[in-house]
């Protein structure tokens, strides 16, 4: 038997607010009451009392339906300032009874779960958007439910308690556009200078499908910029714009380099961030915290 204190803390942990059905219920009870009170119509009185009783019992159930719901962060995409990124949560039902009609909401997305079995979990995906770069915390998510009856919405806020890094907004001139302008690199990023035989380890996205269709031979594209000897150097000091613009520009280039597997190094004040020595995430993190 749980102590009264525990029950009170359970009741306090889940909040509620009336819905439009609550007002409909109130109107129904008032009309029934008028009918019953004037004429002492006991059938109607009983219906009113059952409505009140069932609504109250439903509130209690609603609380227990949500109380045992917990969330755990599983993984997340990279967060960039001013753009949405998704993260995965495991919604766990720690009760010995199933939970029903659960919605998990972040600021930007709501995910609905029809039911979770006892001691089971469901994986959901939510989205979040931050305005500032740097260290941040994933905000609380709200778990809410109309179960069992929709006259009130039961909800509770769950703290994910996960520190994340929000990278600067990837913005500015594309790396390849810039190189085209400077004429130091030829061709477009999508241009390839020929095809070669498919080797183990080659990306499947480079497969030259036309050759495969024509000759039934597995060939891959040989890209112009796939030159491992070339290395890009970015110098924060000499870049144009204010610090935030420069950081945004750097972020964009880092992502482009990562995408096309180009090596790069960045001179950031006294530090040199070399993609061959530290991971892209670490470089982005340094930029985010700058």
């Amino acid at each position: 038997m749980k102590s009264l204190k525990t029950y009170i803390s359970i009741l306090k942990s889940v909040k509620n607010r009336p819905t439009k059905f609550f007002f409909f219920l109130v109107v129904a009870i008032v009309s029934l009451f008028l009918q019953a009170y004037i004429h002492n119509y006991n059938i109607v009185f009983l219906v009113i009392f059952f409505l009140v009783g069932v609504a109250g019992a439903s509130s209690l159930y609603g609380v227990f339906n949500l109380y045992y719901i917990k969330v755990k962060l599983l993984s997340s995409q990279r967060f960039f300032a001013h753009s949405s990124a998704s993260y995965k949560l495991s919604v766990v039902n720690e009760s010995e009874y199933p939970s029903f009609d659960i919605s998990v909401t972040s600021k930007h997305k709501t995910t609905y779960i029809k039911s979770i079995k006892p001691y089971h979990s469901r994986t959901i995906s939510l989205e979040e958007k931050f305005d500032k770069r740097g260290e941040n915390f994933l905000p609380d998510v709200r778990v809410h439910s109309y179960f069992p009856l929709p006259h009130e919405l039961k909800y509770k806020d769950l703290n994910i308690n996960k520190k994340i890094i929000v990278y600067p907004e990837a913005n500015g001139v594309s790396l390849f556009k810039l190189y085209n302008l400077n004429n130091s690199l030829n061709g477009d990023i999508n241009d390839f200078e020929g095809i070669k035989k498919f080797n183990q380890g080659d990306s499947t996205s480079y497969i030259h499908w036309a050759s495969l269709a024509k000759n039934n031979s597995m060939m891959v594209k040989n890209f112009i910029y796939e030159d491992e000897t070339k290395k890009l150097h970015f110098d924060f000091k000499t870049m144009k714009g204010n610090s935030e613009q420069k950081l945004s520009q750097l972020t964009l280039w880092i992502l482009e380099c990562e995408k096309y597997k180009l090596d790069f190094s960045i001179n950031l004040d006294a530090n040199t961030l070399d993609s061959k020595k530290i991971s892209t995430d670490e470089i982005l993190k340094t930029i985010a915290k700058y």
Binding site: Y37, I38, H39, N40, Y41, N42, F45, L46, F49, F50, V52, G53, V54, G56, A57, S58, L60, Y61, P148
Partner: peptide
């Protein structure tokens, strides 16, 4: 589940039915 809700509401119904103040001595003639 619905039965559980009704059973939980039963004591409330009984108490309210007994103590809820009535004004009429007469039975409804509806």
């Amino acid at each position: 589940f619905t039965s559980q809700l009704f059973i939980l509401s039963l004591p409330v119904v009984v108490i309210l039915f007994l103590v809820f103040p009535r004004i009429s001595f007469q039975k409804a003639e509806f």
